[in-house]
Structure formats: structure tokens, C-alpha cells
Design a protein around this nucleic acid. Structure first.
Length: 180
DNA sequence: ACAAGGATACCT
DNA sequence: GGTATCCTTGTC
């Protein structure tokens, strides 16, 4: 019997596109965390794009380091890091290997805030570098939800004033209007 | 309005 | 080995 809630797991190819193309497409998709027999999931409602070595808000603008290594890898892998000493941030790497870019998952339906969603889903740095696939127990699904493009709003990214006026002002945050 | 909290990057 | 800074949140 087919589970009506189930959908199609996004293939690696989905992520191997420019980050600014991938980010808005993730809205309306479902983040799924599977542990043993049970799974929890929620619709993605808010994301931010971090685009390459030039983007001063992107960690990779500091160069290739132990932390940013994952972002330089190929799209479709998780990039998870700790911020402010207490919150795990969940990002999905995009594009081809060698170009550092990722989408930060900032909000899910019913869960606002990037630190809250990782806590609720039990996501930590152990996922860093793992592929967004069923084997990892953490992946993104398309459940056929169609999003009216008019519902997708943009704004500057949150908490990146340190990146200077040009990069902190880029409209790289995408969210569903009626879910913030 | 602001402290908590620990890793990271970049000095000396 | 020291220090400033950080893609936040909860409580003040």
C-alpha cells in the first residue's frame, strides 16, 4: 500500500544547479528525518542562498578550510555547522564540485528559525558531508506540492550585516509569504 | 536589551 | 596560546 504522504526523493541532479536556482525550488518540498521505523517531516518554508567565494556572507569566502571543505564538494550533500556555540545550522550544498555554494534551511512549516528546526529534527554536525539520501536518514522529498510563484517572497539574508552593504543587501532569502 | 556558548579564523 | 567574531535563541 502506497503511503499517501510519501513522495519522490530529490535526486543529486536537483542540487547540481546554481544555488540561486535551487533555493526557491526548495520551498514547498519536505525535509524528512528518518530514524529506524519512524520518520518526521515538514514542509520547507524559508531558505537562504550562499553563493561562492565572492559572497562575503558565505563561509567559503574565507577560502578552503577544514570547515568549508564540504561546501566545495559536489551538490546534494549536507553542510552542518555550529553557530553561536549552541545552534546547528542545516545547509544543502549546491552546484558542481569546486564551486562553494549552499542553501541554508531557515524555516519549516510550524518551525521558524534555523536553530530550532535542527533541534526538533535531531540534526547535528554528524550529518556534515553526508549525501541527502535515504541512507543518511535525512533527505528532501517532492510531495507534489505546487507553489504559486507569486507566493515566493525575497528579502536580504538574516544576520549577515558583517558581510558589508553589498552582500548583506542581496535578496538571497526566499520564503513563502503566508508561512512566516 | 542581552547573555549564553563553543568552534573557527587569524593574529602574535 | 590569545582573541574577536559568529548564517541564533530564550529570557531578561
Amino acid at each position: 500500500m502506497m503511503n499517501l504522504q510519501s513522495g519522490t526523493i530529490l535526486a543529486p541532479e536537483f542540487y547540481k544547479k546554481p544555488v540561486l536556482a535551487v533555493a526557491p525550488e526548495l520551498l514547498g518540498k519536505f525535509l524528512v528525518r528518518q530514524t529506524g521505523q519512524t520518520a518526521i517531516s515538514a514542509m520547507i518554508t524559508e531558505v537562504e542562498a550562499y553563493d561562492g567565494p565572492e559572497d562575503l556572507a558565505c563561509h567559503a569566502s574565507k577560502g578552503r578550510t577544514a570547515r568549508t571543505e564540504t561546501m566545495f564538494g559536489e551538490g546534494g550533500h549536507w553542510y552542518v555547522y555550529l553557530v553561536y556555540g549552541m545552534h546547528e545550522m542545516l545547509n544543502i550544498v549546491t552546484g558542481e564540485a569546486g564551486y562553494p555554494a549552499a542553501v541554508l534551511i531557515r524555516g519549516l512549516e510550524g518551525i521558524n528559525g534555523p536553530g530550532r528546526l535542527t533541534k526538533r529534527f535531531g540534526i547535528g554536525r554528524e550529518f556534515n558531508g553526508l549525501p541527502a539520501a535515504i541512507d543518511a536518514g535525512l533527505y528532501i522529498e517532492d510531495r507534489g506540492m505546487t507553489i504559486d510563484p507569486a507566493r515566493i517572497k525575497t528579502s536580504p539574508r538574516i544576520g549577515v550585516d558583517y558581510a558589508g552593504p553589498i552582500w548583506s543587501g542581496k535578496p538571497y532569502r526566499f520564503y513563502l509569504e503566508d508561512s512566516v
